[in-house]
Amino acid sequence: MTKHEFEVAMTCEGCSGAITRILNKMGDVKFEIDLPKKLVWIESDKDVDVLMTALQKSGKEVKYNGTK
């Protein structure tokens, strides 16, 4: 599985909670959230566009930083 890094404009626990709920619904993804650094790492075989679209459902600004 590929590990992707995204920068998400999260400001609080509520924001990271929303991201957690969205990613848990996707299934077949492992993820880590670093709220202070506003980073989300997702390990998945899904296409980057699919992951990006899912993260954007949170209403937050999302930037793809590449694979790690």
Rank of each mutant, 00 (worst) to 15 (best):
K25R: 09
L39C: 09
V48H: 04
L35Q: 06
A18P: 01
S44L: 04
D49N: 07
V40I: 09
H4A: 10
W41M: 08
L23A: 00
L55S: 15
L55N: 15
K37M: 14
E61C: 04
E43M: 03
L23P: 00
I22F: 00
I22H: 01
G59P: 13
A9P: 01
F6C: 01
L39P: 07
A54M: 04
E32C: 05
G17P: 14
K46L: 10
A54L: 02
S58G: 15
K63H: 07
E7H: 00
K60H: 15
D34H: 12
G59N: 14
K37P: 07
I33C: 10
V50W: 01
C15W: 14
E7C: 00
V29W: 03
C12F: 11
V50H: 06
T2S: 14
M10E: 07
D34W: 08
T20L: 01
L35D: 07
L23M: 03
L35W: 12
D28A: 09
T11G: 09
T20S: 05
R21Q: 03
M26S: 02
K37A: 15
T53R: 08
L39T: 11
I19A: 05
K63S: 09
V62E: 04
S58D: 11
T67D: 05
K57E: 12
R21W: 00
D28V: 01
W41N: 09
V40N: 07
M1V: 11
K37I: 09
A18K: 15
